[in-house]
Simulated scan of single mutants.
Amino acid sequence: MSYNLLKGKRGIIFGALNEQSIAWKVAVRAVEEGATITLSNTPVAVRMGEVSALAEQLNCEVIPADATSVEDLEEVFRRSMAILGGPVDFVLHSIGMSPNVRKKRTYDDLDYDLLAKTIDISAISFHKMLQVAKKMNAVAEYGSIIALTYVAAQRTLFGYNDMADAKAMLESIARSFGYIYGREHNVRVNTISQSPTMTTAGSGIKGMDKLIDFSDRMSPLGNADADECADYCITMFSDLTRKVTMQTLFHDGGFSSMGMSLRAMDQYEKSFDQYRDDKGNIIYG
């Protein structure tokens, strides 16, 4: 169902790769809600063909760019303003990748050159994006800029590795830059902390399927899926949230506020069944 929440608005969606991508779903919902958009991803991702299929579906243009390159980002904003007819009203940063995770390097055995790439791709690219947009006056007053994050920025979750460090920096950038951008141009900058989601990037995290199951058992509302995250992004792009900025907004079914749930406790108790004596007492070995 469309509510015309973005009627007449213009936006840029960074990071749509395939139908599993949250960015892909955000792009679809944004157009459904009346926006005109451009898409951007790396030249390699664009050559893969699926992003082009989305662009054809939504009747929008794809602008290939490396989000770690200031020059490429300048081109994205310059071309987007030309294509869309002026400054944009919203931007989505859905970019993250850890070479250490891909190479199965554990957190206590990181390759530091790869760590620098993780931070550059997953966090500093957001600062570059914000800085370029501000210098080019590319985002309209009361525009909304969103980056996707995860609770591992604040809590330790096994297997998330150096992406946790990147997400912590991402959230800090949103606060620090959000103050300046809000004060000078009334532009909102927030991060959305999404439930673990089986995107192409997420599938590279060790034990992701188990993490998804655990968080689902812990969350009173269950995990938020990618379509629901897209809906939340749309509300943050809309005029209904004009005074929300510098926030990490948890979209995780309540997981971030939980200590232990009944479902998780039941599963935990069941794991001890094989260690009980004939009176039902747990035998600790």
Score class of each variant (00 low, 15 high):
Ser2Leu: 12
Phe14Leu: 15
Glu19Ile: 11
Val26Gln: 03
Ala27His: 06
Val31Glu: 14
Val31Ser: 05
Glu33His: 09
Gly34Met: 03
Ala45Met: 10
Arg47Gln: 15
Met48Cys: 02
Gly49Pro: 11
Ala53Ser: 04
Leu58Asn: 03
Cys60Thr: 09
Cys60Ser: 02
Val62Met: 06
Val62His: 02
Asp66Lys: 15
Asp72Pro: 11
Leu73Ser: 09
Arg78Pro: 03
Ser80Val: 08
Gly86Ile: 06
Asp89Ile: 09
Phe90Tyr: 13
Val91Thr: 07
Leu92Ile: 12
Lys104Thr: 12
Asp108Ala: 13
Asp108Met: 14
Asp111Ser: 14
Leu114His: 11
Ala116Asp: 13
Ile119Gly: 08
Asp120Gln: 15
Ser125Ala: 08
His127Arg: 13
Met129Arg: 02
Lys135Cys: 01
Met136Ser: 08
Met136Asp: 07
Glu141Trp: 01
Ile145Asn: 03
Ile146Glu: 04
Val151Gly: 00
Thr156Ile: 14
Thr156Cys: 07
Gly159His: 08
Lys167Trp: 00
Leu170Arg: 04
Ser172Thr: 11
Gly178Trp: 03
Tyr179Trp: 15
Gly182Cys: 10
Arg183Asp: 06
Val187Gly: 10
Val187Leu: 15
Arg188Tyr: 04
Val189Ser: 07
Ile192Met: 10
Ala201Tyr: 09
Gly202Leu: 05
Gly204Tyr: 12
Met208Ala: 10
Ile212Ala: 03
Ser215Leu: 12
Met218Ile: 15
Ala226His: 03
Asp227Val: 13
Asp231Val: 08
Thr235Asp: 04
Met236Pro: 01
Ser238Cys: 09
Thr245Ile: 07
Leu249Cys: 07
Asp252Asn: 08
Ser256Trp: 00
Met260Phe: 04
Ser261Pro: 11
Leu262Pro: 00
Ala264Phe: 11
Glu269Leu: 14
Phe272Arg: 09
Tyr275Val: 10
Asp278Thr: 14
Ile282Phe: 12
Gly285Thr: 15
Gly285Asn: 13
